[in-house]
Amino acid sequence: MALMPKRVKFRKSQRGVLRGEETRGNTVAFGEFGLQALDYAWLAARQIEAGRVAAQHFMGREGKLWIRVFPHKPLTGKPAEVRMGSGKGEPVYWAAVIKPGRVLYEIGGLPEETAREALNRVAHKLPIRVRLLKRRPRQ
């Protein structure tokens, strides 16, 4: 099931501005390999879930997968054939706000080739460019 918050303070949020690079959450912290975002995006919960399913399906019961992002932002939309106006639409889906540099997924307990292939499959499910990141030797 797609990720979403259990409790929120407000039903709808303003759009916000995507600028700058990610200053936190930009290193591999849990596993040995990570997938780092290279673009800005609102990553929908279903896209995060699609990535997870792709990786888990390939990994089977081996290794461990971490999802480093969470869809906190509610995005709204208006129904089809409705005139503009009459206020903001209803929440349609949830998304994670992604800036370049953010580590999206991490994999541990797998050899490099397998982890690389798993993350490559995740990359195909994402709407942005990403790159593979290895754990820095000195952290």
Partner: peptide, 27 residues
């Protein structure tokens, strides 16, 4: 031991998503 992947049934997932559109409000 590796944990089995929990796969939600499609109908249950759809129902879950419908309910999921509105989380509880902190008020």
């Amino acid at each position: 031991e590796a944990r089995e992947e929990i796969v939600a049934a499609p109908a249950a997932a759809a129902a879950g998503e419908a309910a999921a559109a509105e989380p509880e409000l902190i008020r």
